[in-house]
Amino acid sequence: MTETIQLIKSLADKHGRKRDALMPIMQAVVESESYLSDIAMTEIAKELDIATAEVYGTATFYSFLDTVPRGKYVIRVCKTITCDMHGKKRIVETIEKLLKIKLGETTQDKKFSLLYTNCIGWCHQGPAILINTTPYGDLDEEKITEIIMEYMRK
């Protein structure tokens, strides 16, 4: 908790305490803590002197600003048309099997979350995914297994 508070203070020092600092601060918190906890949002509200509801309302608008706990690695499988056509479902099933979780869930060790996302701009290499910020395209069962195994070893 104190770490979160420290983090947000330093982020506010860096990005300022005006309303337009809200997005960069929230993004940085999600990068470091994988989601925005109620404590984090309250602290951000304090630093920027805006209502907690405002922080929450803004955060929930953006699909990458999670307000529920996520794993260290968030896997987002693109579900938009060309990735859909080229087998996103197989990719999801493979990951589900590997991590023993269902879509939308987080592994017990809090290492992975598996989610759908809308178009990530790799339509020519569908199916494609993002693991945190890193994109992977042209996936098939074999390739995604390799990638996930590598993350599991991390």
Partner: peptide, 19 residues
Amino acid sequence: SGAYICGEESALFESIEGK
């Protein structure tokens, strides 16, 4: 942070403004 609508110019401004 993952919102297609922010490609709409005025929505994009709102987002830059932290909303």
